[in-house]
């Protein structure tokens, strides 16, 4: 009986200690999670201009005929092709280029270049086109009136107008007939510390032609690569300081 009692007491003690230890572990764990969350940015926190998200495209690594980035982008953002080539939205496209004099050929992905001084945001009458503090160019679909002036102004032809009723939208990528849309640099992924879909798809295909990162952090891989290797902005003459830069062009 006494043995039994001591056994019971030791079991109780064990259970109690386990519970304390478990609680402590849980507390430590949740603490870790909280720390991570604080780093990521809570949904109600404003976006910081301490970072500037950007992409570095290496055209030398971009494989002719491969469209994995485009497919991933359109799948991620719920963009379906209805077969009307001239009016279907294309947030991303592959462009084949050939030097008119030398015949040198290359291919590269084109999308919104997320300019610092973006013509789309300049001309938008309502302010629906805007540049987020972290450098991502977006369209506020609630106040876009569908005037298409931004499409007239964009030197990269990066925007699409929704010519038809949109179905199968993704909750993270609101879209609608009569408004303008473009690459969001997968802002929903960026906000939860994930890579844009195109970057992920390019890496999955083994090409690693698109790199994502913080251009303002001198220690980030993208910033170090840009500092040590040649890269250029498309239409650099316009001095729009795009967040997307290219190598091998």
């Amino acid at each position: 009986m006494s043995d039994n009692k001591s056994l019971q007491s030791s079991r109780r003690e064990f259970l109690g200690k386990s519970a304390v230890a478990g609680a402590a572990l849980a507390a430590a764990g949740s603490g870790l999670v909280l720390t991570r969350m604080a780093e990521a940015r809570a949904p109600d926190q404003p976006v910081s201009n301490k970072v500037r998200w950007g992409l570095l495209v290496d055209a030398a690594r971009c494989v002719d005929g491969c469209t994995d980035c485009v497919t991933a982008c359109h799948e991620e953002n719920g963009i379906e092709q209805s077969g009307h080539a001239e009016t279907d939205p294309q947030w991303m496209r592959k462009v084949e280029l050939k030097d008119e004099r030398t015949g040198y050929q290359l291919s590269l992905p084109m999308m919104c270049q997320h300019c610092e001084t973006a013509p789309c945001a300049d001309v938008c009458p309502t302010g629906a086109s805007f540049i987020r503090a972290d450098g991502i160019a977006l369209v506020d679909r609630h106040i876009c009136i569908g005037c298409r002036y931004c499409m007239m102004a964009c030197p990269y032809k990066a925007r699409s107008f929704e010519h038809e009723t949109v179905t199968k939208q993704k909750p993270h990528a609101p879209r609608g007939k009569g408004t303008v849309e473009a690459c969001t640099m997968c802002v929903h992924r960026v906000d939860s510390e994930r890579l844009p879909a195109c970057v992920e798809a390019c890496a999955a295909a083994g090409h690693n032609a698109i790199m994502f990162g913080d251009l303002k952090d001198p220690n980030s891989e993208i910033a170090r690569k840009m500092a040590s290797e040649p890269s250029r902005a498309m239409r650099a003459d316009l001095k729009l300081n795009p967040g997307v830069r290219y190598q091998g062009v």
Binding site: Q90, K94, V95, L97, K98, D99, E100, R101, K157, M234
Partner: peptide, 11 residues
Amino acid sequence: LFPGMAASSSF
């Protein structure tokens, strides 16, 4: 968009 280059795409 690409001065000096002949460009083609789906867009």
